[in-house]
Design a protein around this nucleic acid. Structure first.
Lengths: 153, 153
DNA sequence: ATTAAATAGGACTAAAATAGTCCCCAATGA
DNA sequence: TCATTGGGGACTATTTTAGTCCTATTTAAT
């Protein structure tokens, strides 16, 4: 199904909340309450986002988390790779080792093309887009081919 | 990491082999030998591809599998959805139920845009592309934005 | 100084998804 | 009629993901 993990999905919810409250430090506890996600899980996600430099943290009393950049500078690609590592459709596209498949694997170059395309798609949507009301979007769809979904599935 | 499953990866290897031997019926056993993938696993994949109408099967002695269409009509999107179901980055993009996340989930529309973009990317590459020598490709990359990968990850 | 409120890091467990195998049935050609 | 080949589905094992918890560290307030 080629899906993102639950944690990544949560991350977008958390970050959307923070984007709406822009420039205010939020404690993990507050975010847990606001989103309905359990505190330990929220913490885990926030830690990952800090490591990926999507968030900045301050420790100690009155500490918490803050977006490291403006919402329109934080892309979905960034969020996904913060929680799941590099965006790559196959293992072999990450490690340049190539796979051990004996025969017929000269395909990796093609996966790279696909990866690039997907990466660009994910790079085209930002946190700022995500907190816009739904009507105002559909813009990037026009960047991509919409026609001929004709092969049966 | 947003990756396809191992089985899907195998499927592309198997289908590539078949595309190169186009218009010849291949038995599961032959494909297992040719690709180095275990027979039961190959069978499982072939069954899924038949169900998705990517392959046509003939039973009985001298039976086997055949591509249901020309390699340039079989897209990567089709192969992935044959093995993994509909291509959708989030659960909620499939079932229109919406998610149970209490607060702040008006995001689904945005995921749909992303799904569409990814789907089109996967739809742009066919089996025929995959069996081409690597030099001859990189075409669809130009359909997508390549610039500004500037947000840190 | 001490304490309370926060995050950091990492170990651990539980749950779910994926991969892989196997068995018995149905079809077909020799 | 028998050997060969696919069909369907159950089952097990493995791996990944999700979720929790514990201990240490930092900092503001008193």
């Amino acid at each position: 199904m080629l899906k993102i993990s639950k944690l990544t999905d949560y991350a977008t919810v958390i970050l959307s909340f923070m984007a709406k409250n822009n420039q205010r430090v939020c404690a993990a506890m507050e975010l847990a309450t606001a989103t309905g996600i359990a505190l330990p899980t929220v913490s885990k996600i926030l830690k990952a986002l800090v490591n990926a430099k999507v968030l900045i943290s301050t420790r100690g009393a009155k500490g918490g988390y803050l977006l490291a950049a403006a919402p329109d500078k934080i892309t979905v690609a960034t969020i996904i790779s913060a929680l799941e590592g590099p965006i790559a459709v196959t293992e072999c596209s990450i490690s340049q080792q190539g796979c051990e498949q004996a025969a017929g694997c000269n395909i990796s170059g093609h996966w790279n093309v696909i990866n690039r395309a997907i990466y660009n798609a994910l790079e085209s949507v930002t946190l700022a887009d995500m907190i816009k009301p739904q009507e105002t979007l559909i813009p990037i769809a026009s960047l991509y081919r919409i026609e001929n979904h004709n092969v049966s599935q």
